[in-house]
Amino acid sequence: MSRTFRVVLAAVLSLAGLAGVVIFLARQGLDRAEKWTSLVGMFVSVAVAVAGLVLGWLTWRQTSRPAAGSRSGRVSRTGTAMATGGGSTAVTGSLGSASGTAVDRTGDATAKDGGRAVSGEDRTGSTQP
């Protein structure tokens, strides 16, 4: 079943259902139609509220977790690192694409003679000085 066919079928069924509701309410008279509308409106509003709460909870749950396959965790209270010479890298904390990683209270990173020092987090992933 193609997507276009399903969309057309859903539209036709929705219009048929709406026409049925209009015909039903027209035959009920004004007073009873108003009561039916209030009753159905209450159930629809409760359903929309519950759906909003569920979607909000699912969104909160998804954003509070790291994506599948990503590194996550905490890097804290790291020691001292020193890079000496070209092409060397000293890292205290995290290096690379570490989304979801909390980095705090890192140690000291120093570089000499063309080295590279990172104290904290470097999300670029570059190891070039």
Rank of each mutant, 00 (worst) to 15 (best):
A51Y: 09
A51K: 03
A51S: 11
A51V: 04
A51L: 14
G52I: 04
G52Q: 02
G52W: 05
L53I: 15
L53K: 08
L53M: 13
L55R: 06
G56Q: 08
G56S: 14
G56V: 06
G56F: 13
W57V: 13
L58Y: 10
L58T: 14
W60P: 02
W60F: 11
R61P: 00
R61M: 03
R61A: 13
Q62M: 13
Q62K: 14
Q62R: 14
S64K: 13
R65D: 01
R65V: 09
R65N: 08
P66V: 07
P66Y: 03
A67H: 09
A67W: 12
A67C: 04
A67R: 15
A68R: 09
A68E: 12
G69K: 08
R71F: 13
S72R: 11
S72I: 04
G73P: 06
R74L: 15
R74E: 12
R74H: 11
R74D: 10
R74K: 14
V75D: 05
V75S: 15
V75M: 15
S76D: 15
S76G: 07
R77A: 11
R77P: 04
T78V: 07
T78F: 02
T78Q: 08
G79N: 04
T80M: 07
A81Y: 03
A81M: 05
M82N: 03
M82E: 05
A83K: 01
A83R: 01
T84Q: 11
T84F: 09
G85C: 09
G85Y: 05
G85A: 07
G87M: 03
S88A: 14
T89W: 00
A90E: 01
A90N: 01
A90P: 00
V91Q: 02
V91Y: 00
V91F: 00
T92W: 02
T92L: 02
T92M: 06
T92Q: 06
G93C: 13
G93T: 09
G93R: 10
G93L: 15
L95D: 07
G96V: 10
S97I: 01
S97R: 07
S97P: 00
S99L: 12
S99V: 12
S99G: 14
G100W: 10
G100P: 08
G100K: 11
G100S: 12
T101C: 03
T101D: 03
A102E: 09
